[in-house]
Design a protein around this nucleic acid. Structure first.
Lengths: 367, 367
DNA sequence: CCTACGATTTGGATCAATCCAAAAATCAAT
DNA sequence: ATTGATTTTTGGATTGATCCAAATCGTAGG
């Protein structure tokens, strides 16, 4: 189907181009382009007449074409390893919000914790000429990946976990401090036997938690009790049971994440014990379900939404200034105390179901 | 910084183009292009020599440039309204997996249930010339939106909810049948007072549930008891309490989604009642947490991962054949019976925490 | 009236691929 | 060896924007 000749704008079929608008407004292609990019060079009268033509012809900007010449796609690649995890969901929501404000749009990929899948996606992102990458590295990612990306000249901000050597961009939480807060809180409640469960893989986020745990325990002159396990609900369920059968069972446990804490609470019930009374339980993440469990779970809030926003901000900064100093944004966690570690105040009355704080709350509605 | 002349390939700086490879392999640009697109036209020997040059020069395909000429971006836009909801997380994971297999990549946006935000994103997607859209329409979306997209010549598959008039592409679950399954199950358990709570907005997914409820209840010769509420946990918490205070309280409730069901169970406990014994509770979605609640929640499983895969498949089909007949894929829900509706079998022993079926299971690990 | 000078505007080249009609190379049959 | 039919390869045009150096406009100053 032959396109109509250029000088006759064809509003219905085919796409309207800069050329068409230029003809309609009686100016040149270049001028229209300047108007589109809000350049101050264009005279006010011209600007308005061009705008009118744009509206009249129903023009649609072609970012692909623009990107070809300007080598800026206004596009970012985001890689997470488990988008079904609400924690990442919230983080992605934060990223999305921050990018939206800057007229950026993001590709999302779910690596399923497979370095191969992750690499394939990154290569595809390169082919699409994204301006940068937000990477939450899959378990077992080769540390050289960051240099590879550097070699590609691809700005990359790591999120939550990090690999490779220190001068990199990174946004995450201070897990070390988070665990310390938990320990301090439990000690203040009178606990002396405080165990930590979770984490066998040694990525940055796991190591930080261990550091925090051992340091805080030592600081209080207590003996550490640490169990390496997988990071699943079931692992929590099993770990707590084996701990409680030991000669001197712990009176409190801190879990690598909330899921494990849920499992641990279920494990306690299985033994006929009551979480929060017979053994305190503290989780990490403060997912929305933490407020809803029975009993409500004390948890180290790690603010995924805010981390997502920060990471996006960092990425945009790096894109604007590729050679600026690398930056690390480490948010401070906050301890959200609830009944699972608060025997004293434990009331049989779950008054109203506690709501997470407004900033990160999103109504969990379903279709 | 001036580019080196074309005939001297510059592997290090700047990007290698088709031209460079052509020169290196001693063929023309066109031939290289054909090799890249796996065209059968090229002779085997030529193909190999070109492949060698591609490898040698470290060429990176420029999809943007390709898209400009071929008007196919290998790109899709995905709009959901709450990515922090694990239900959508799982759905997006399904979409991602299906697209990955076909070498497609997707933009993701979170509309936050705002039609304005949604529209802005769709416009941006049009500027990026995505090949198609997967849309889970925000609450209150103008039904004309679908025609608008049609006018844009933009293939669009609706997911989970739908708006506009019937000849459209759609992937979702048969909520009507799901609720019917729940009613039948409860009746089989001897219940005669079965209430339904949830849903004040009248989008397709809500209406379908109502239809299923009223039809099934009438089919059993029972009296309906239906409460319109918001779709939050708190709404479930409050609704159940007001229901239980009525002269003839229900012996079972079906909830619009699992979150509300969790709220309802908490509400029952608040009244000193035991969910599953004093009143059966059934949810919808079968999110992973359903297996973990106390008691474990009976729920209508709606398979978000599979829906995502189907939706992606539909979109790719529509892109390949824009004028083919519109298609609706409606998956059948399955009732996942657990203790919250199974008083007879209720054991005090939560044996091992039940795991969701392998197909849709993803370890909920955290960094 | 002419010249500067700043403010606007412009045309041609360019970005990196694909499309397509036509040319060149290869092979088979006469 | 020539013709005809295939099989491969190719150059030039095209896609829709941006870049940039140069052209044009407007007007204030001499």
């Amino acid at each position: 189907m032959p396109r109509a000749p250029r000088h006759t704008p064809t509003p219905r079929e085919g796409s309207v181009t800069l050329q068409d608008i230029a003809a309609h407004a009686g100016v040149s292609r270049s001028t229209v382009s300047l108007v589109l990019r809000e350049s101050p060079l264009v005279a006010e009268r011209t600007r308005e007449s061009v705008r009118a033509s744009i509206k009249a012809l129903g023009y649609v900007y072609n970012r692909g074409a623009a990107a070809l010449r300007s080598s800026r796609t206004h596009t970012l690649g985001v890689v997470v390893y488990d988008i079904a995890n609400p924690f990442f969901g919230a983080m992605v929501a934060g990223i999305d919000a921050a990018l939206h404000r800057e007229n950026y749009v993001s590709f999302l990929a779910n690596s399923e914790d497979s370095p191969q899948r992750q690499l394939r996606f990154l290569e595809r992102m390169r082919e699409h000429r994204v301006d940068g990458i937000l990477l939450c590295p899959a378990e077992g990612t080769d540390p050289a990946l960051i240099e590879t990306l550097g070699g590609w000249n691809m700005p990359c901000v790591q999120v939550l976990r990090h690999i490779g050597e220190p001068p990199f961009d990174y946004a995450g939480t201070d897990f070390e401090q988070g665990v310390r807060l938990a320990v301090d809180h439990l000690v203040a409640q009178g606990h002396r036997q405080i165990a930590f469960i979770g984490g066998e893989a040694e990525h940055s986020a796991t190591l930080a938690r261990w550091r925090g745990y051992f340091a805080a325990i030592a600081g209080h002159g207590l003996a550490p009790r640490h169990l390496r396990t997988a990071l699943t609900r079931r692992a929590g369920f099993e770990a707590i049971q084996s701990l409680m059968r030991e000669p001197t069972p712990p009176t409190a446990v801190i879990c690598h994440n909330d899921l494990m804490a849920f499992g641990a609470m279920l494990g306690l019930k299985r033994l006929g014990l009551t979480p929060g009374i017979d053994c305190a339980v503290v989780g990490t993440d403060d997912v929305e379900e933490a407020a809803l469990s029975d009993p409500p779970l004390t948890s180290v809030a790690t603010h995924p939404y805010a981390i997502g926003e920060e990471a996006a901000r960092l990425a945009l900064r790096r894109i604007a200034d590729p050679d600026g100093a690398r930056e690390q944004v480490i948010l401070s966690p906050r301890l959200q105390v609830r009944d699972s570690s608060n025997a004293a105040d434990r009331s049989q009355d779950p008054a109203t179901p506690p709501q997470p704080d407004a900033r990160h709350a999103r109504p969990l509605t379903n279709p």
